[in-house]
Nucleic acid binder design. Structure first.
Length: 377
RNA sequence: GGGGAGGUAGCGAAGUGGCUAAACGCGGCAGACUGUAAAUCUGCUCCCUCAGGGUUCGGCGGUUCGAAACCGUCCCUCCCCA
């Protein structure tokens, strides 16, 4: 059977064990480890596809739940798939709706068959199962699809984490069997199991037995501390095959990304850079700043003199401060461009360091020189 | 000249005898944000030696146990007619 996705490891860092690779997708090749910007509603908020190419965005995410509700997967299919619909010709990945099981917890009910959501748009009763999620993702047509899982909150009891993880495994199997496009759309399984070693191990092993195109680590970045997150990542990764791509879901703080790479993580996505940009918080090589602050009102220096993005090359902090205070969309756009470019460039630098067998040095330099606080951005 | 409306914290605007240092919005000052219900959310925003105290609602005077609110007077804005 033709494979929709192949993964090639190009180097393993002698210092750290971190690796670089190339992900070959139907919409092109991308280098790993990489950061993937999130475009939930078939758009990375405020950014055009041209800007995404310019940023070096490898893979862009879209969201199954949100596109299912609006405009509906049939429209996306009629458009010729999500890439045609949004005019983005690079590789794309759809999250399954599993995160909405977590983020929309107040308005949903989980059962073995699937999850009943109360529509966030009009209150309609909606039912998403592993089969529905895959059908919708088949219609959306992204290069990589995710299994429909339950992203559980932290903390969760052992009993609940176990019950949920076992159900997520059954859902993964059902989703895989429901996939109509196994030769053109890759499907990843998602390791769950909360903060419990044996559950993470068991989940990973079962998923590997099912043979997915890649494996994701889910259930992190849901309120736990950094130490806990890394513990969960470590356990999840222990029993995953080295030759398959590994995707740590929902991680985008600088220190988290660098730690993830140490665990041979190849892909990360996060709304963090775009969300905080819209809220006026920017990642810079000297740490985090909030452009709203009065001290930037007459600061005519670039946001980050070390950055090569369109925003930093052409505009000042004073101008960004002004645009933010005026609530101008162009400010949102410039700041989104910067934050995404900041993380993508960080990953470019990480890849270079890996290839030069000095990733640990690189990581330590970044974490000390950038003066990032506990949050890591 | 005649008639009418009104002056409340940086701005707009509620409040028309005690529950009011005074709603709410804006502005300002901070904080949060990790597979996006997020251009969102939270806190603070008269002064001070701040679990307390001080001084306020155009000015002055009065009524009252008590006034931003009631009365008198003065000042100032805006609208209509001439």
């Amino acid at each position: 059977m033709k494979k929709p996705l192949t993964f090639e490891i190009t180097h393993v860092c002698k210092q750290s064990g971190a690796r670089t690779g190339i992900l070959h997708t139907p919409h092109g090749d991308v280098e790993t480890p990489m950061f993937m910007p999130v475009g939930t509603q078939a758009t990375v908020k405020f950014l055009s596809p041209e800007e995404l190419y310019a940023l070096g965005a490898g893979v862009v995410l879209a969201n199954t739940y949100h596109l299912w509700l609006r405009p509906g997967e049939k429209i996306v299919r009629q458009a010729g798939g999500v890439q045609k619909f949004m005019n983005y010709n690079g590789p794309m990945l759809t999250d399954s709706g599993g995160f909405q099981v977590f983020s929309l917890a107040d308005t949903r009910k989980i059962e073995e068959e699937g999850v009943t959501f109360k529509s966030t748009l009009n209150g309609d009763k909606l039912f998403m199962s592993p089969e529905v999620s895959i059908q919708v993702q088949n219609a959306i047509g992204a290069d990589i699809m995710m299994s429909f899982d339950e992203c559980i909150p932290y903390p969760a009891s052992y009993e609940y984490a176990k019950k949920s993880m076992e159900r997520t495994l059954r859902w993964a199997k059902r989703g895989k069997e429901a996939n109509q496009n196994p030769e053109t759309q890759a499907l990843f399984g998602i390791v769950q199991g909360g903060d419990y070693q044996d559950l993470r191990y068991a989940c990973a092993k079962e998923l590997v037995d099912m043979d997915f195109d890649g494996y994701a680590i889910g259930g992190t970045s849901v309120g736990e501390d950094k130490e806990t997150m890394l513990r969960m990542v470590g356990w999840s990764v222990d029993h995953l095959p080295l030759e398959k791509p590994r995707y740590l879901m929902g991680v985008g703080a600088v220190n988290d990304l660098l730690e993830a790479i140490s665990y041979q993580i190849d892909m990360c996505d996060c709304v963090l850079p775009t969300r905080i940009a819209r809220h006026g918080t920017l990642m810079t090589s000297h740490g985090r700043i909030n452009i709203r602050k009065a001290i930037y009102k007459d600061d005519f220096t670039p946001l980050d003199e070390a950055c090569d993005c369109y925003c930093c090359k052409n505009y000042t902090r004073a101008y960004l401060n002004h645009l933010f205070r005026c609530n101008e969309g162009f400010g949102m756009r410039l700041m989104s461009i910067h934050n995404i470019r900041f993380l993508i460039r960080l990953m470019e630098q990480a890849r270079k360091a890996i290839k030069e067998d000095r990733f640990n040095d690189f990581k330590n330099d970044v974490l000390t020189n950038m003066k990032f606080d506990e949050r890591g951005f």
